[in-house]
Amino acid sequence: MTVLGIRKATSGQNGVGAFILQCKRLDFHYCDWAGSSKGMNAFLRSSLAKFAAANPQVEMTVSPRPKKHPVIIGHYINGREKAICVRGLEPGQILKKAELLRDANGEKLKKVTKPVKSLNESVRGIWSPFHGGGIKV
């Protein structure tokens, strides 16, 4: 037995094989009294049922938050959450915000500069000064 096996764990690549939507819960908070919740209340009455039926993989909860602005909070699989205040927005705009939260992956926003991110080693290898004829000075 000259070779030993090292125990490791595989790493997931969401979307390779199976895709898991990263948003697991959306909380809709509204106020019955305040005017900033007018659009939210209309959204909850008219479009939420349709939105929820179209996205069965997301758990949706609706709860009042009296005397506060309406807010949508998304909870993500990585443990983070994102909240968007939707005060004074129209139902259509609120739907856009809900879709934005649904499609987010929960990570902090960061600038993507490289076009490709890979777990594999580079096929070409690391440049070596000892190969390829050398450089004439």
């Binding site: 490791k8 690549q13 199976a18």
Partner: peptide, 20 residues
């Protein structure tokens, strides 16, 4: 296949040689 075998593993990194 979709959830377990599609995950990434560099099998080459599991080797530990004693007398190569």
């Amino acid at each position: 296949h979709a959830h377990i075998l599609s995950r990434h593993l560099a099998i080459g990194s599991l080797f530990q040689f004693k007398t190569p």
